[in-house]
Amino acid sequence: MTPLVINGSVNMIGAGLAAIGSGIGVGMIFASVIQGTARQPEARGMMMGTAWIGMAIVEALFILALAFAFVIK
């Protein structure tokens, strides 16, 4: 007898793998912002503006993966 049965879609594993990539990307973006702020605190506002846009673009990859994980059977 099987101790535990999990039914579901393997797509979700793919979505999880995609999260690794954009997680690393978002981490690198904000690591750079922190470093930049430490070197030049007065440029923080300008860097944060760029960082939010960059984060949105990097994050879009994961969002696409999640959308496709639900759509493609």
Binding site: A56, I57, E59, A60, I63, L64, L66, A67
Partner: peptide
């Protein structure tokens, strides 16, 4: 395409 999908995807997720 990305503009629409990004907004949708974030809210959906």
């Amino acid at each position: 395409l990305t503009l629409g999908l990004r907004l949708f995807g974030n809210m959906f997720a």
